[in-house]
């Protein structure tokens, strides 16, 4: 059967799609975020299943995870992981905040400036 289940599964429904936000692009983004949230929830549930199975097989008591005490070195690495994750996630806001400090000039203004003096 020459059908791609992934693409077919994501087929649009016949009929015009309504948009509820004044800016449909914001709503598109919401849809991406919700898909991300769903896959994150799926991952967390999977991890939870893993932990419980490990515990049920006496391979790893759950307290070992709850009370996990990393070495100082591991702790630093883990904190850095969190920091990196957050910076990746929040890039757009962090960049906005940065520009607040050093107001950026528009590319059009610079284009004009650099073009000064050149003439026909």
């Amino acid at each position: 059967m020459d059908l791609d289940p992934l693409l077919l599964g994501a087929a649009p429904a016949k009929g015009k799609r309504p948009w509820f936000f004044s800016d449909p692009d914001v709503e598109r983004l919401l849809n991406v975020v919700m898909a991300l949230a769903m896959e994150l929830a799926v991952t967390r549930q999977r991890l939870d299943a893993l932990e419980r199975l490990l515990e049920a097989r006496a391979l790893l008591p759950r307290e070992a995870i709850e009370g996990f005490a990393p070495s100082p070195e591991a702790e630093r690495e883990r904190q850095l992981m969190l920091r990196e994750f957050q910076i990746r996630l929040l890039r757009i806001f962090l960049q906005d905040a940065q520009r607040e400090r050093t107001p950026a000039e528009s590319i059009e203004r610079i284009m004009k400036e650099l073009a000064e003096g050149s003439g026909p």
Binding site: A13, R17, W19, F21, E27, L30, N31, M34, A35
Partner: peptide, 9 residues
């Protein structure tokens, strides 16, 4: 928006 999104998902 969330309900429509949920239906589509």
């Amino acid at each position: 928006a969330l309900r429509r999104c949920s239906m589509e998902m």
